[in-house]
């Protein structure tokens, strides 16, 4: 267990380092630098801006400052950090390059709860619909219910989430104004985006759960239990369900990553002020600091989720050895 966690931590550090380094190199190699504007700045102003963001430093020093916990300016290694450009290991993602007087940390802190609420809603939709659909179609295989659930899940898998979102808004917000078209602020604002974001994953969960349950129910121990006279409900709940849930749980990691990705689009459609929409805006407006900061935050989130899922996997299924394929 400890070896597994340590190894994952090492890979994680390597990945984060790669992201930081690649983006640093890219930022420095863009013609004109990250702060170039269409206007020609007065030399004094330009010098002031360069000094503020330490663009007058040699590249290695800028890199260490971006990366490291140590403060490299005249305030001393552990001194006042207020005047430096970043320092990711000190959890400082630096100032936003487009939004004046706002740091990337502040933007992330403000928008991450919004995205988290959306993501949790989506995951809730995915699990609720997926598990219910899978359960119904596995317990009544071959019936009309089963067919309906399978057709729905095939549809959910083959429609991109923004298409689902458009159609949902068209029907449930425009034609029949039950939910708000877009925006943020009340629980009603969460329903449609959460559903659109979660629907493809609900479809996949339903497929996995159906296959898992059918396989679990065809085992000999189930037949034995039935022969002994164990009630059907107890058989399903106690013997079949735990085994059938294993593939679903191992899918949660990729699903969470996919929901994060999907939120970029969904937040844009529903104009939700989440991290994803800030990221896209940052990328489109050349706010490299913001884009890199959000990339890092999401890398960390996806990594942490995957480790959690692996741990849960090992807890549920004692045959899984964590050390082997870490």
């Amino acid at each position: 267990m400890r070896r597994f966690l340590l190894r994952r931590l090492a890979w994680f550090a390597l990945t984060v380092w790669a992201v930081i380094t690649i983006s640093f190199v890219l930022m420095r190699s863009v013609p004109g630098g990250p702060l170039s504007t269409d206007r020609t700045l007065h030399p004094t102003v330009e010098a002031a801006v360069n000094a503020r963001y330490h663009l007058d430093w040699p590249a290695w020093r800028q890199y260490l400052q971006t990366l490291g916990p140590l403060n490299l300016d005249e305030h001393g290694l552990l001194g006042d950090r207020s005047a430096v450009f970043g320092g990711i290991l000190a959890l400082d993602l630096g100032p936003s390059l487009q939004q004046r007087d706002v740091s990337v940390n502040e933007i992330v802190a403000q928008s991450l709860p919004v995205s988290a609420a959306l993501g949790v809603t989506a995951l809730g939709w995915a699990l609720a619909l997926g598990l219910a659909g899978g359960l119904v179609s596995a317990l009544r295989p071959g019936t009309a219910l089963d067919t309906a659930a399978r057709v729905l899940s095939t549809l959910g898998l083959s429609l991109p989430n923004f298409v689902i979102a458009s159609l949902l808004v068209l029907v449930l917000a425009v034609a029949f104004p039950i939910f708000p078209v877009a925006g943020w602020g009340s629980p009603a604002h969460l329903v449609l985006p959460g559903f659109a974001l979660g629907a493809p994953f609900a479809a996949y969960v339903a497929r996995l759960f159906r296959a898992g349950l059918l396989e679990a129910l065809s085992q000999d121990c189930i037949r034995t239990a039935r022969a002994k006279g164990v009630p059907w409900r107890a058989i399903v709940l106690r013997h079949a369900l735990p085994g059938a849930l294993v593939p679903v749980i191992s899918f949660l990691g990729p699903a969470a990553a996919g929901i994060l990705t999907g939120s970029l689009v969904i937040e844009r459609i529903f104009t939700i002020p989440g991290t994803g929409s800030h990221f896209v805006a940052g990328a489109l407006n050349r706010d490299y600091a913001l884009a890199m900061g959000v990339t890092l935050v999401y890398t960390v989130a996806v990594y942490a989720l995957n480790v959690l899922v692996d741990l849960a996997y090992a807890l549920i299924d004692p045959r899984v050895e964590l050390e082997k394929d870490a």
């Binding site: 004109g32 050349r286 890199m292 996806v302």
Partner: peptide
């Protein structure tokens, strides 16, 4: 394990930059 979509968008954002 890299969150590719973010890196891709990040990369494309550099290519959106007009050369001065």
């Amino acid at each position: 394990s890299l969150p590719t979509i973010f890196l891709v968008i990040f990369l494309l954002s550099f290519l959106n930059a007009p050369s001065p």
